[in-house]
Design a protein around this nucleic acid. Sequence first.
DNA 1: ATGAATCATTGTTATAAAACAATTTATTTT
DNA 2: AAAATAAATTGTTTTATAACAATGATTCAT
Lengths: 230, 230
Amino acid sequence: MAKFSKANDCHACPYKSYSLSKLDKSDVENIQNNCLIVNFKRGENICKQGTEVTHALYLAKGSVKIYVEGNSKNLILEIINVSKYIGLQSLFGSKYYNYTVSALEDSQICMINSSLIIELAQTNVGYLYELTKTISESTNFVYKKIVDINQKQLRGRLADALLYFSEEFFKNNTFELKLSRRELAEYSSMSMENAVRVLNEYKKDGIIGIEGKTFTILQPEILRKIAELG
Amino acid sequence: MAKFSKANDCHACPYKSYSLSKLDKSDVENIQNNCLIVNFKRGENICKQGTEVTHALYLAKGSVKIYVEGNSKNLILEIINVSKYIGLQSLFGSKYYNYTVSALEDSQICMINSSLIIELAQTNVGYLYELTKTISESTNFVYKKIVDINQKQLRGRLADALLYFSEEFFKNNTFELKLSRRELAEYSSMSMENAVRVLNEYKKDGIIGIEGKTFTILQPEILRKIAELG
DNA sequence: ATGAATCATTGTTATAAAACAATTTATTTT
DNA sequence: AAAATAAATTGTTTTATAACAATGATTCAT
């Protein structure tokens, strides 16, 4: 299992959440004293669909995938990078996780007792407001996702994914994706074989460049057209 | 366009939101004075995907559908009944609606300036906490939805929908659905023809009874098995 | 270092579900 | 009440995409 340690100085942490600035010094110390920093290797589960929600999860280092497990196939809903809470809606809306989170690379998670976060949220409106904004954004993200995978077919979905990574996630035409082909397929809701096929189609057509896990968007306008038309 | 009137006594309203109990009397009066009650007929749009979020929407009477519009087909995400806020995540997470809401029957919506609700949320932690719970529940609902429509096929999806209506929404074996066949199809993410086909299949097999828009779940265990197996 | 295991790739086949078509039944509208 | 429009139904065809299969390339563990 993963190595863990106690938090020592949240205030000085370069990866700390902006929401902490809305709390009193003593509240931050309270979080610090009730925070466990846990290290996860690529592939390890951080929380598991169906289990009880006991901690707030804050991603301090690395990146993770949030996915829902079906009978046979998974669907990756969101990739998350450093300095973000993961799945806050589970703290306020339900007793059990309805998704699994696992590490895409070696990652560090701050685990804080959920009861403490709820208590702080119920007494610090500025703090809760920040958390609520995060939850709302994540809800909006899933709404977009549900449209993409429902209304578009293969090529459009994959184009959507590539554009999202380049324009919103990495904000760069060239990016090194932490996902395997199977994971990229699970992100775009298709079989791994078809993900590979369409990727190589785009490569052959000079729309993207592929070098292992490094992708380059060569013709974003064409990709955008494909994404629009579905 | 829809008829509208001013709110006159939110405090005495039998359909009022529980969250109002977390506000001071003066704040409730403030809402009341800034609240427009608008009547919508079946089919009328209450808010439209792509437009700016200017009001909080509270469903005081009737029922509505929340759906996302694609190029050719729509997907209904959620059906909402009286005494609930609609799409709160849009107040805190984004400037534009990423879904459309329209009335399933003649309905009454309280429209409150979004800036007022945000102001109250930023100063009343108990109130915001209630709103946050609602947003979180709706996020969890969409998570479940995205799994259903992704992992299951026709029969499983429709079984899911029927079970949800009978067990969670109407809490009754017999219920009169406000949805047309096309809308039921859009709720279960399939073509209208296939929705009809599968419904009649279930009827022929004695799993459900259909009388126009009135459905009766005759063999919930079998339906549940179908929903589980996909 | 070497075998095991997973990943990536390409071609082929099978199938679930949409699209199309045509008819019947309800609902509006004038 | 009649005409017009939309909804529901059933059968047939087409198609997008998963599933299967077979091979080569990487990565991983011992």
